[in-house]
């Protein structure tokens, strides 16, 4: 049983390795002198030389890579030369915020998308189904950062229901924290929710036609047990697949959405460091967000084995 999972886990290692190579390459690929770029315009040649040595840029490439990777594996992401903070500290501050945002939008998307898709399949062709289809088509097409702005304009500035931007740490005031994250999570969730409406609807329609579902009805099970317990459970495999495929979008879009709502997360850190050509910070933050994404994807794959016993326990095994 564990073998399928183990294989999948082992497959992650080369991907993460490749990712680190790509991210490491950033600083070498930048045209011009990356150190000068890192330090900004008013750096003295002396300081540049010193930083070059500190960064290990005077060593062979593979040594630099191994040192960098070795540091990361020990939790040492180097130092942000602009602010003087260890990069690990920046990551530790921002990653939980982004993670919370992603979890929240995922929740919203799954509840709204799977709910609307199921309703659409059960009442196929009727009003709720039509509404769901239209919303889904629009939701896939809407630019989420613009939707975010519209939400700010309507719900925050005009109606005053939510704060328009900013952030309260979870540990300070959980409710206020949630309050600040509702709109960004909503904007971020729309695309995924829209895709989930579609896939849930079509997967449910397929399942509702299956013999075993009519058989479940013939056993006198309640409609709820039939549709949710047997129907939705069987539709879960394609739904989870799509969630896995769309996760990347969710992770990437935080770079944009956190900017719209001034959320101090990892996406914001990536954007700010990119705009400031702060390469060591770009490297670290991109690598961490990418790695978290890869690992989350791994969790999704493992989820299959929980949902579908045929994956975990193939016949004859």
């Amino acid at each position: 049983m564990g073998q399928a999972i183990l294989t999948r886990v082992l497959l992650v290692i080369p991907i993460l390795f490749g990712m680190s190579v790509v991210v490491f390459a950033i600083i070498r690929l930048v045209p011009g002198d990356p150190v000068a770029a890192v330090l900004g315009l008013n750096a003295t040649p002396q300081l540049i030389e010193q930083t070059r040595h500190q960064l290990g840029l005077d060593q062979p490439l593979w040594v630099q890579y191994l040192q960098w990777l070795g540091g990361i594996l020990h939790g040492d992401f180097g130092r942000d030369y602009r602010s003087g903070h260890p990069i690990a500290q920046l990551l530790a501050q921002t990653l939980p915020v982004t993670f919370e945002l992603i979890v929240l939008s995922m929740l919203i998307a799954v509840v709204a998308g799977v709910g609307l898709g199921t309703v659409g399949a059960v009442w196929r062709g009727r009003v709720p189904d039509r509404v769901g289809q239209v919303l889904s088509t629009l939701g896939i097409s809407v630019p989420d950062f613009w939707l975010g702005m519209i939400l700010i304009l309507g719900l925050a500035l005009a109606l005053g229901l939510f704060p328009s931007s900013g952030f309260t740490p979870l540990t300070d005031d959980p409710l206020d924290n949630l309050w600040h994250l509702v709109l960004p999570a909503l904007a971020l969730a729309t695309g995924l929710a829209a895709v989930l409406v579609r896939i849930t609807r079509s997967a449910m329609l397929e399942v509702l036609d299956q013999d075993f579902l009519r058989a479940a009805r013939s056993r006198g099970l309640s409609e709820r047990a039939v549709v949710l317990g047997h129907g939705l459970r069987n539709a879960a495999v394609p739904i989870v697949t799509v969630i896995g495929m769309q996760l990347g979008y969710l992770f990437g879009a935080t770079v944009v959405i956190e900017n719209v709502f001034s959320v101090p997360g990892l996406g914001r850190l990536i954007l700010d460091s990119t705009l400031a050509h702060n390469y060591p910070v770009i490297q670290a933050s991109v690598l961490v967000l990418g790695a978290v994404f890869v690992l989350t994807n791994l969790l999704v794959d493992i989820a299959y084995t929980v949902i579908d016993p045929r994956v975990a326990r193939p016949a004859g095994a």
Binding site: Q210, D211, F212, R214, A215, A216, S218, R219, G220, H230, R233, N234, I307, D308, P309, R310
Partner: peptide, 17 residues
């Protein structure tokens, strides 16, 4: 309960999950 069915192709009557 009072009225039971064994559907055609019996194996398809069972939920695979």
């Amino acid at each position: 309960d009072r009225l039971a069915m064994i559907p055609q192709g019996g194996s398809g009557a069972l939920d695979p999950l």
